[in-house]
């Protein structure tokens, strides 16, 4: 790996607000030790930062680490270097999607959810994305059915989100935002 590519990947990751602080990581491991999904991750947050520094773009973006980040912000408030770790995890998700490295069942959950928003302006229950389940976990769905049934009988489950009145202007806003794009 050349000096140039190493820098390019780190640069790509650090474009977000406050992202530059990643360069000050001291590899103390506080983040990994605080992470509730650490055990399920291919690499802990600390390891992923070491790999980013080493320019291991593909290894990083193909890993499951950031997809297992549940956005709990423990690492962010505990990091002695004040690195916005959670935001970096989001950035890695976006970079992985752009690079085409991702597991369909994971990103499609996000995409199904976002698709609902673009259609209705509102969403299904985040934790009970029926459409997503039926599509990717048919067997799991059967096992889930008592749960679904409980939610339905208590009036807690909708099969379709409500549609907002201003759906057209909302779509126009989102279209414009996508068109502008850019790094933030």
């Amino acid at each position: 790996m050349t000096e140039e590519t190493q820098h390019t990947f780190l640069d790509e990751v650090t474009t977000i607000p406050g992202g530059e602080r990643l360069r000050t990581c001291i590899q103390c491991g506080t983040c990994g030790g605080s992470c509730p999904s650490g055990p399920a991750m291919d690499y802990t947050p600390r390891e992923i930062f070491a790999l980013i520094m080493a320019g291991e773009r593909e290894r990083v973006l193909k890993s499951n680490t950031f997809w297992f980040c549940v956005s709990c912000y423990y690492c962010t408030i505990r990091c002695p270097q004040e690195i916005p770790i959670t935001d970096i995890m989001y950035q890695l998700k976006r970079l992985a999607i752009k690079a085409g490295y991702y597991r369909a069942s994971i990103t499609n959950f996000s995409e199904t959810f976002v698709g609902q928003i673009e259609t209705y302006g509102r969403s299904f229950e985040l934790g009970l994305a029926t459409a997503h389940y039926l599509r990717y976990h048919p067997i799991e769905s059967v096992r889930m059915s008592p749960l679904m049934l409980g939610m339905v009988t208590r009036g807690r489950m909708a099969f379709r989100p409500k549609r907002i009145r201003g759906i057209r202007p909302l779509r126009a806003i989102l279209r414009k935002a996508k068109e502008l794009g850019g790094e933030w």
């Binding site: 989001y90 009145r165 201003g166 909302l170 935002a177 996508k178």
Partner: peptide, 25 residues
């Protein structure tokens, strides 16, 4: 009036500017 979904954590994983615009509406 006529509020929309905030995008939860999902939109921020996909596309940043639309995610902010969605909330800002």
């Amino acid at each position: 009036p006529d509020w929309n979904c905030c995008g939860a954590t999902e939109y921020f994983s996909l596309d940043l500017l639309p995610a902010y615009a969605l909330v800002a509406r």
